[in-house]
């Protein structure tokens, strides 16, 4: 019997494509998302937010500004934040809503073993669910983006320039990548926790932590690390960027507010003294290529975090017993 055990092939040698059935899963899950009451509700909220913020922004705009359409997304009127600000917390919310009951929901409905008894691998089910969430998110965000552009066109009467469209699209891409991180987290929690409510609350707890507490915590950590103010800034910046929120807001800023000042601030090379020296440069807009270079690490960071979280969920799911 011993040699049988050794002769048993490892999982890596299993036959057949791991992606058999992937698109069937994606189609089913997307249909579910797009018809669910949960998503309808969130879509309504994001729609109202978009219309409201853009409407207010329109009133604040001066027609002579250079990047009218970008200002549409970033200009705010007190006390409301701008469109980008709202996105910073609506996107995680939607992403979490799309993923928190992905796997445990199947467990609780006792559909998981039935689905996995079909000729597909677990890989297809998990990736299918992830992609369906991501596609749904992309669909919703693109629709909102188009809506904002359309509103702008109606009210401003001038079409966006090529640069504005390009920057807007990059911003859209970044936003989707940012959503991917939270989707990955929610998916992981949907495997770890049997109760969807627990998974949802845990995801939201993590989100609160990185949005609200991480910044404060970094301040404390940095003070404990060193007394040198320059080193403190360096460390602070490095630590604070572990949060996807930081990456996202910095990238949004660089894309939608293309001044050298904002760019340098993101790059972390600016000090008050340098700012004075650079005063002359502030009105000059940065070319798109420069902005892109600035946010490249941010974008790849967000994508890498998404992939990492998905890989984690993959490992957890492969090891899980599927019986109810």
């Amino acid at each position: 019997m011993a040699e049988r055990v050794e002769a048993r092939p490892r999982r890596a040698e299993r036959e057949g494509s791991p992606w058999t059935g992937l698109w069937a899963v994606v189609a089913k899950e997307m249909a579910d998302h797009l018809t669910s009451a949960r998503m309808r509700f969130l879509e309504l909220i994001i729609l109202l937010t978009a219309v409201g913020t853009v409407y207010l922004a329109l009133q604040e705009l001066r027609r002579t500004e250079e990047f009218l359409y970008l200002a549409l997304l970033t200009r705010s009127r007190d006390p409301l934040p701008a469109f980008v600000g709202f996105m910073g917390f609506l996107v995680p919310l939607i992403a979490i809503a799309l993923g928190f009951d992905a796997i445990n929901g199947e467990f609780n409905r006792r559909t998981l073993s039935r689905v996995l008894a079909q000729p597909i691998y677990r890989d297809a089910l998990l990736l299918g669910k992830f992609l369906a969430g991501l596609f749904t998110l992309a669909l919703v965000l693109t629709a909102i983006w188009l809506l904002v552009m359309g509103l702008g066109l109606l009210r401003l009467g001038v079409p966006p320039t090529g640069v504005e469209v390009a920057r807007g699209l990059l911003y859209l891409l970044t936003t989707i990548a940012y959503g991917g991180v939270w989707l990955g987290l929610a998916l992981t929690f949907s495997i770890v926790f049997r109760q969807p409510a627990t998974a949802a609350l845990s995801s939201i707890a993590v989100w609160l932590f990185v949005t609200v507490f991480w910044g404060m915590l970094v301040g404390l950590i940095v003070q404990g690390l060193t007394d040198d103010p320059v080193a403190q800034t360096r460390w602070g910046l490095a630590l604070v960027r572990l949060s996807p929120n930081t990456l996202y807001s910095e990238a949004s800023l660089a894309l939608l507010h293309p001044t050298i000042e904002s760019t340098l601030r993101i790059m972390g090379v600016i000090t008050p003294l340098q700012l004075v020296q650079l005063q002359w440069a502030v009105p000059t807009p940065l070319p798109l290529s420069q902005s892109l270079m600035t946010i490249w690490p941010h974008l790849t960071g967000l994508i890498a975090a998404t992939i990492l979280l998905f890989a984690l969920s993959y490992v957890l799911f492969q090891r899980q017993e599927i019986r109810a």
Partner: peptide, 16 residues
């Protein structure tokens, strides 16, 4: 273990 897809294509399973 090695060819689960072939097994599952021809075997129907009704879980408890």
């Amino acid at each position: 273990v090695r060819e689960p897809l072939k097994v599952k294509a021809k075997v129907g399973y009704l879980p408890d």
